[in-house]
Every structure is written in C-alpha cells, then in structure tokens.
Lab assay of single mutants.
Amino acid sequence: QLWTVEEQKKLEQLLIKYPPEEVESRRWQKIADELGNRTAKQVASRVQKYFIKLTKAGIPVPGR
C-alpha cells in the first residue's frame, strides 16, 4: 500500500525522535510501532528510498 502524505510527515518526525542506533532494526521497529500501520521492514524500505532521494537532491538526512 502506498504511503500517505501524513505517514511520510510522521515518519520524518520519528526519524528525528529516534536517532540512529547500533542495531538499526530496533529503530525501525520503534518507528513502526508509533506509526501503527506499518511493519519495521516497510519502514526500513521507505527510509532507504527516502534517504537516497534526499542525498541525490543534496538535502541533509534527518537524524544524522
């Protein structure tokens, strides 16, 4: 299922709330739990694509 604008905005906020961890899967699980309707795997996939998009555009990656 496609990500809504609201989900993307919340994801961006949660990336700041939950900074990078030694075991990133824990971070994705915390974010997924707060989103409520996404799995950690879906979050990880979305974040990877989002970070690539930001990097290509020369925009700083949130939480890094």
Rank of each mutant, 00 (worst) to 15 (best):
18 Y>G: 01
33 D>F: 10
41 K>T: 13
45 S>Y: 05
24 E>F: 04
54 L>R: 14
39 T>D: 15
62 P>W: 06
43 V>T: 01
21 E>V: 04
54 L>F: 14
29 Q>G: 09
18 Y>M: 04
14 L>F: 03
34 E>L: 05
51 F>Y: 09
60 P>R: 07
14 L>T: 01
20 P>L: 05
15 L>G: 01
31 I>W: 00
46 R>C: 11
55 T>I: 06
41 K>H: 12
54 L>Y: 08
59 I>H: 14
31 I>S: 00
47 V>G: 03
48 Q>D: 10
9 K>I: 07
56 K>T: 09
31 I>T: 00
19 P>K: 07
28 W>M: 12
18 Y>S: 02
24 E>W: 03
44 A>M: 11
34 E>P: 00
61 V>W: 06
23 V>S: 11
11 L>P: 00
19 P>R: 06
11 L>C: 01
17 K>D: 08
21 E>N: 03
48 Q>A: 12
39 T>V: 02
34 E>M: 06
30 K>Y: 03
9 K>P: 00
24 E>G: 04
58 G>A: 11
61 V>P: 14
27 R>T: 03
10 K>Q: 09
9 K>D: 11
37 N>V: 06
43 V>C: 02
23 V>C: 15
25 S>V: 12
34 E>H: 05
37 N>L: 05
27 R>Y: 03
52 I>Q: 15
19 P>A: 12
34 E>N: 06
21 E>D: 11
26 R>M: 11
13 Q>C: 04
51 F>P: 14
64 R>V: 12
38 R>D: 00
46 R>V: 11
18 Y>I: 05
53 K>T: 14
53 K>V: 04
26 R>G: 12
20 P>N: 12
22 E>R: 08
21 E>Y: 02
51 F>W: 11
11 L>S: 02
54 L>P: 15
37 N>M: 07
47 V>A: 14
49 K>E: 15
44 A>T: 03
48 Q>S: 10
37 N>F: 07
38 R>V: 13
20 P>M: 11
50 Y>W: 10
16 I>G: 10
58 G>N: 08
49 K>H: 08
14 L>A: 07
42 Q>V: 04
64 R>D: 15
41 K>E: 15
63 G>L: 03
30 K>P: 00
27 R>A: 03
57 A>P: 15
32 A>G: 03
22 E>I: 09
24 E>R: 03
25 S>Y: 12
10 K>A: 06
53 K>Q: 13
39 T>M: 01
21 E>P: 02
48 Q>L: 05
15 L>K: 01
46 R>E: 12
54 L>D: 15
33 D>W: 04
13 Q>A: 09
9 K>A: 10
27 R>L: 01
22 E>M: 14
29 Q>C: 08
33 D>C: 08
29 Q>E: 14
15 L>N: 02
52 I>H: 15
12 E>A: 06
40 A>Y: 05
23 V>W: 05
60 P>C: 07
55 T>H: 10
55 T>K: 12
20 P>V: 10
42 Q>F: 03
60 P>L: 07
61 V>A: 13
40 A>W: 13
56 K>P: 12
19 P>L: 08
56 K>Y: 02
30 K>T: 03
57 A>H: 10
46 R>S: 08
32 A>E: 00
57 A>M: 12
36 G>T: 11
62 P>L: 09
35 L>D: 00
36 G>S: 07
24 E>D: 12
63 G>S: 09
61 V>S: 13
43 V>P: 01
49 K>Q: 11
30 K>I: 04
56 K>N: 05
55 T>N: 11
13 Q>F: 09
35 L>Q: 02
24 E>N: 07
57 A>I: 10
5 V>F: 10
39 T>G: 04
43 V>S: 00
36 G>V: 12
52 I>N: 14
36 G>H: 11
28 W>C: 02
54 L>G: 15
8 Q>C: 03
8 Q>W: 03
19 P>I: 03
21 E>C: 06
9 K>S: 08
54 L>V: 11
19 P>G: 13
10 K>W: 03
28 W>T: 00
36 G>C: 06
14 L>R: 01
59 I>V: 14
19 P>C: 05
31 I>P: 00
10 K>F: 06
39 T>K: 02
23 V>T: 14
62 P>Y: 10
64 R>H: 11
34 E>F: 04
44 A>I: 05
25 S>K: 07
59 I>C: 15
44 A>L: 09
21 E>G: 06
53 K>L: 04
25 S>M: 14
62 P>T: 09
27 R>F: 02
12 E>P: 02
58 G>H: 12
33 D>M: 08
22 E>K: 11
38 R>I: 11
50 Y>N: 14
18 Y>V: 04
52 I>E: 15
27 R>H: 03
43 V>N: 01
63 G>V: 09
49 K>D: 13
9 K>E: 12
43 V>A: 00
11 L>I: 04
2 L>V: 08
50 Y>V: 13
